[in-house]
Amino acid sequence: MLSIRHIVKQYANHTALDDVSLEISKGSIFGLLGPNGAGKTSLIRIINQITAPDSGEIYFNNEKLNASHINRIGYLPEERGLYKKMEIGEQILYLAQLKGLSRHEAVKRVRYWFERLGVESWWKKKVEDLSKGMQQKIQFIATVVHQPELIILDEPFSGFDPVNAALIKDEILELNRQGATIIFSTHRMESVEQLCDHIALINQSRKILDGPLKAIRDSYRSQTFSLEYSGVLNDVTDTPLFEVKSQQVDDNGGKITVKLNEGVTPNQLLSYFIPRVTIHELHEVIPTINDIFIRKVKNLDPQAETNNIGPN
């Protein structure tokens, strides 16, 4: 769907993007993650042809990105807004027509979305008369009204209240089911973690990691388990099965985190504990994207040099 190859973008006194390459496959939900100022918005602006890269190329469905692709992309910018004094219906019609829809088609599409989100009665209202939450719905309609094949959402849930965020999330997933490719860009990694199937981490204008979310997380598994129990646990240090990472003890039980030694299974771990304490919960400690990011940035990860875990 979208192939980003060796993009470099330089501003007067800093490099916004340094040789960034990404492959985004059709129908995927792609998370473009990284802290503020990492270069996400610069990359998105290049995809939207708002700015051009200094070098590198982008291919949209195997065609070199050009002006004809603009109408096939829907973009919800981080800095968003609408004309304050323009009627909402007219405004969305205008934006839809700017995306290449005929007036007739635009009217049909805008009506459809207004009904879908239950905002038909706002057609004649002005933006300044709407609440923030209402404006967010309208803004979302403006992004998707022209049935884009690629939807780019920059910090989509910042500024959305929880009710609207959930509503919009459902709509995005529905559009994805219908075939649209979605790019989420955010610095709040936990907010999109469950949604994305692919992610890329960007830090200080470089891509530091990308691949399918599951594969990335699997590669960061370290055979670490956390066990909650009640009873008294004595002397667990002397065992060939695992080493203790941490242990908390309270009045009638505690929680212990252990790293299994090579070749040991969780079942063996359980057999070790069953005669000693009452087990309440055992789960594997898998790092969150945020943890992975921090480890990656701080270079704590032993496999730090093997960046690419290519798409399976």
Partner: peptide, 16 residues
Amino acid sequence: IEEKTSRIIEVVISSV
């Protein structure tokens, strides 16, 4: 200035 302060500018120039 209105387009800039109301932040609609980025929506518009992703189309034109």
